[in-house]
Amino acid sequence: MPQIIFEGRHYDSHPGETVLETLLKHGALLPSKCKTGTCRTCMVRVVSGTPPAEGQKNLKDTLVAMGFFLPCCGEPGEDLEIAHVDVSDHEVMLTLAERVELSDGVVRLRLHSDEPFRYRPGQYVNLVRPRDEAVRSYCLASAPEDDHFLEVHVQRRDGGDMSRWLCDELPGGGEVGAYGPAGDCFFLPNNLDRPILLAAADTGMAPAWGILGDALRHGHRGPITVVHGSADAHGLYLDAALKELAAKHEQVTYVPVVMGAGEDHAALGAAIDALGDLKGWRGYLCGPPGVVKLLRKKVFLNGAASADLYAVAFGD
């Protein structure tokens, strides 16, 4: 019978057992709850082997692409090495190669990695300040195919200790630790003809920019609509670059939205409504949690299927 390898130990599975049952029977520590594929508490990642199909049946395609599966569903058909889905505990040291003020308040950092760092544009990394090990997550706007630089966009905030450090204090050549990558909001080249909506607020444009570049790199043929919202024009920090891209690529449309200071983000919602029926679209939704929540509801109610929505929300 197949063996399950988890945290360096080998477990023999028996006929009729799910991977989770095998692990729990032998006392392995893996949190679980419903055991029916609903709550996702026990979700793990496969390191080698092919997980049972039932364990991936209801998961988003990006989670499947990362090897995630639910060990409570289905029997293993072969030996499986599995691991926790948490961000890797291997720290990579990055050095600051370039810092550019993209607009009043938004800074672009390019960080160099000496060792190869595999990720997909739109995923995030946890950056660590060496002096006190403060950690914040930042989404990647770059692509590993292009070069060895990781690009992040940082909003300079009053009282934002980490953002201040990254924007103003970290010297050129200075070191930043990084853990990752993580996140299921990225492009998969499994359908190049479907319309894509990239809806971002503030520095949510970083992952959106990464995903946009990835779609074009893979030769995406369907229409791509980029909606970028921010309280004021300074927040639309890639305005010129996006206009240029839209002029160059026929299928790309750019919709800048100045939202104003209100909490309801009504202007952004109206911009989404103006796109009409979103049935059959894929939606990538990136920004602060409140905006992502609004975008999710809006894009879903306007016709996109829930399985076609990818989102990344970061603290604001």
Binding site: C34, T36, G37, T38, C39, R40, N58, K60, P289, V292, K293, R296, K297, F300, L301, S306, A307, L309, A311, A313
Partner: peptide
């Protein structure tokens, strides 16, 4: 069902959230 629930102002707040997939899995169960 989820579309109807989210579009209904009387109950939508109980079903909203960033993690819509997990919500949908619960509705399915």
């Amino acid at each position: 069902f989820y579309r109807k629930v989210l579009a209904d102002d009387h109950i939508s707040r109980f079903f909203e959230g960033v993690d819509m997939e997990r919500q949908a899995a619960k509705q399915k169960a």
